[in-house]
Amino acid sequence: MDENQTITSAHYLTFELDQEQYGFEIENVQSVLDFEQITRVPRTPDFMRGVINLRGKIVPIIDLRLKFGLSETVKTRESCIIIVNIDMNGEKTTLGVLADAVREVILLEPEQIEPAPKIGTHLKTEFIKGVANYQGSLIIILEMEKIFTTNELLLVHKSGSGVETESEAEVTAVS
């Protein structure tokens, strides 16, 4: 919601989720990997897809499509995992985000980013840093730290049958 937060121009990594363009601030991005085998962790919400081995470290993988109420990300030629480092409740955490495709790194001036509209995005407005109009296409710039606050992600269920998990994942995504 802090629409005036970005004072200087910054680089953003843009990626695609269900044909829509999204952007992450590049300084939080560590690397981009191929969509490899993910080990599922049972009894957790579906948008938490599981864990991978990133050079000897266990890194959790988040499916933003599921989190945003879309269908599951599937493995394609273009799909990949964006590894990001975020500050989660004061603790540095590495996690991976699934994307249908990674596009490019762009430079945006602060005035190019509009505050997120309160309605119409079907996303929690605090997830969105703003919307940028870049070369004729709209890019939703995501507020990474907000999406990945512990409250949002630590929704690990006690009784984790598939149906329940889905509904709860949706609740957080759509609300």
């Binding site: 049972p42 009894r43 266990i58 959790p60 989660m88 955490t93 690990v156």
Partner: peptide, 26 residues
């Protein structure tokens, strides 16, 4: 290996390990 903060509250799983083939097992 620890599953990390995100999966801290998972019940029935106490951690993870990396198998010889590089895959993760819980």
């Amino acid at each position: 290996k620890s599953l990390g903060k995100l999966y801290r509250r998972v019940e029935g799983i106490s951690g993870a390990t990396i198998l010889g083939n590089g895959a993760v097992a819980l």
